[in-house]
């Protein structure tokens, strides 16, 4: 029952953040909160396969980057006025580019997932990493789209007459997508599909023994997580007005995993907390010293060694946050 009151309250606080930041004279906070919201979308998506499905994918930055590049490439062709591959016209309207990003992310995840899920364990971790590296190097080598230097998006996408260049508007859009996505994920997790996925995590062999073919379920979860990461990437491209291969660097995949485990695997709100904690920690430490990674590294090790269930377990010590 507590959640019924708590969640709208949290949402209200989150939504009023730009005004609060303005009132306290720290408008930069809004940009920081946007980053948190966008990474939370990606982390929550990764959590579908990592936390709920128990499959360690080390290559989800690829879908984040693909989502971003879809927006970037469509913009580039819109700017130049020549269609992509001679058939797909460019676009600078979020109502077009966003669904395109989801489609690209979903298709890529379907292809990569279909192949990767034939392996398991260490091999699965490594093959997802390998595919992400392939996508990374592909974009590094595409001189047309800036290669290593990335692609500037001079103008943010149009979206229902809103100005996405305005920090607060961009933040509300990201927050809105995050809330809708979390709601959807909550539905998915509680559905029959979610139960089967949970069963796969606990014991794939047992699920097979009760007559469930697990492969389609794992693949569907993989695609859902890819689509979510692509959505985050599309928002990121509009927020930063810039995409580059760095978006799909393997350390980015690592960061997303850290957010999930930091917040609490297999919990709905955990990745949001994890995203806030990691982005906030990076922001704070980088304000203290140029060598902030020297401090962040040991903190991560401590968290892995001593706080296994993540931040969610601190908020809800008993019950749901604990893993089976």
């Amino acid at each position: 029952m507590r959640d019924r009151l708590l969640l709208p309250l949290l949402l209200l606080i989150a939504a009023s953040l730009p005004w609060v930041a303005e009132a306290f004279g720290t408008p930069a906070t809004t940009g920081l909160a946007t980053r948190i919201a966008i990474y939370a979308i990606a982390a929550a998506s990764l959590n579908v396969i990592l936390g709920f499905g128990g499959l360690v994918s080390f290559g989800h930055a690829a879908y984040f980057g693909l989502g971003g590049y879809t927006v970037g490439i469509l913009w580039e062709h819109f700017r130049l006025g020549e269609p992509f591959l001679g058939i797909v016209p460019g676009s600078a309207n979020l109502l077009v580019t966003f669904p395109c990003s989801l489609l690209v992310g979903g298709l890529a995840a379907a292809a990569i997932g279909a192949l990767s899920l034939r392996t398991s364990g260490v091999q699965f971790i490594m093959i997802t990493l390998a595919f992400a590296q392939m996508v990374y190097f592909l974009f590094v080598s595409l001189a047309v789209y800036g290669g290593d230097d990335g692609l500037m998006i001079r103008r943010t996408n149009a979206f229902l007459g809103l100005n996405l260049r305005d920090a607060a508007t961009m933040y509300w859009l990201s927050l809105g997508v995050l809330v809708v996505w979390l709601w959807l994920l909550g539905r998915i997790v509680r559905s029959r599909f979610g139960r089967v996925l949970e069963g796969v995590r606990q014991s794939e062999r047992r699920m097979a023994a009760i007559g469930i073919s697990t492969y389609p379920y794992k693949l569907a979860a993989f695609v859902i997580s890819g689509v979510g990461c692509a959505a985050a990437g599309a928002l990121w491209a509009n927020h930063a007005r810039f995409v580059s291969p760095d978006m799909m660097h393997w350390t980015k995949s690592g960061e997303l995993m850290i957010m999930v485990i930091l917040g609490g695997m297999g919990t709905l709100l955990g990745p949001v907390l994890g995203s806030a904690a990691l982005v906030g920690l990076e922001y704070m430490l980088s304000g203290l010293t140029e060598h902030w990674q020297f401090i962040l590294g040991p903190i991560l090790i401590m968290i892995v060694l001593f706080a296994r269930n993540g931040l969610m377990s601190l908020l809800a010590p008993r019950g749901r946050a604990s893993r089976g």
Binding site: M257, L296, P298, L300
Partner: peptide, 15 residues
């Protein structure tokens, strides 16, 4: 599990 190992050694790399 492998996930914890990946994360802890990722922390080592940063360090």
């Amino acid at each position: 599990d492998h996930l914890d190992q990946v994360l802890a050694t990722f922390g080592l790399i940063l360090f």
